[in-house]
Design a protein around this nucleic acid. Structure first.
Lengths: 139, 139
DNA sequence: TCTAAGGCTTCCCCCCGCTGGAAGGTCAAC
DNA sequence: GTTGACCTTCCAGCGGGGGGAAGCCTTAGA
């Protein structure tokens, strides 16, 4: 298989596949014309990578997951640990985004959004720390 | 004020402040020894930037917000529009993360996490598209 | 047999938003 | 005068690729 075929199969752009080779995630063979030649197992790995990345695993996580995948003597506990840590990262990000969202939604609601210059959004962003603390106390 | 002072005031690292000068967000003066000299207004802008960034606004958003902040004839509608678009981006990200979270949490639950190699997490990642579709139908 | 289109190769730069570090100038205190 | 904390510039790199140039390779059609 050439890179285009495996790109279609895995859903990954050819550029990404070359990059994955660069960083050692896949190791396709080369045919005499210099083209990369992907085996079934390479295509399989790439699909695996695509799905792991879609779940938000980092490249390093993917490298570890792939190694565990290939190791028939792995302990599922190791895999679970990686997944659990990732789950925590995701939860952290969600919490962070929700906090931003709450603040921002509040400000957007307060803003008239008309031709006048008065704007609680800008006022909040410009506010000094001490005033902000005051507002927190009073709210 | 030197960069260290304004870094303390704004809570931003000096590196970041230099970077913000590079990209034209702040324009401190220079004293004869080559040190950057920040006015009150610069310190104020940097604090503004810090808070906008903490809400997840992109640098370009920040640039626009800062321009609106400085424009006394702005219409609050413009500010609100930027904020609303950002709110949508945040919602999009939250939704995306929640979907990842759901899939991942499900897999983590299913995995025994012991010394045995059998692992539904790896199995799912390795699964072929067609099998995945089948599972969707049957679930 | 020529040609055109499309695929493949490497290469290097770009994105965002910083961050780290090296090499060196400056300033205040002791 | 010398230490140590500042400050300066410049260059490189993070993650995770994307864009595009310049140049082979292959294949289909006229």
């Amino acid at each position: 298989m050439n890179i285009g075929d495996v790109a279609d199969l895995s859903g990954l752009p050819a550029k990404t596949i070359r990059y994955y080779e660069d960083i050692g995630l896949v190791k396709p063979l080369r045919s005499s014309n210099g083209y990369r030649t992907f085996r079934e197992s390479d295509a399989h790995k790439l699909a695996f990578l695509g799905r792991a990345r879609a779940l938000g695993f980092t490249i390093e996580d993917c490298r570890n997951l792939l190694a565990l995948y290939e190791d028939e003597k792995r302990a599922s506990a190791e895999v679970k640990e990686i997944a659990k840590q990732h789950l925590e990262r995701i939860d952290g990000k969600i919490a962070e985004l929700k906090e931003m969202r709450a603040t921002l939604a509040h400000l957007v609601e307060e803003c008239a959004g008309d031709h006048r210059p008065d704007c609680p959004i800008l006022a909040d962003l410009a506010m000094k720390r001490r005033d902000e603390d005051d507002r927190r106390k009073s709210t």
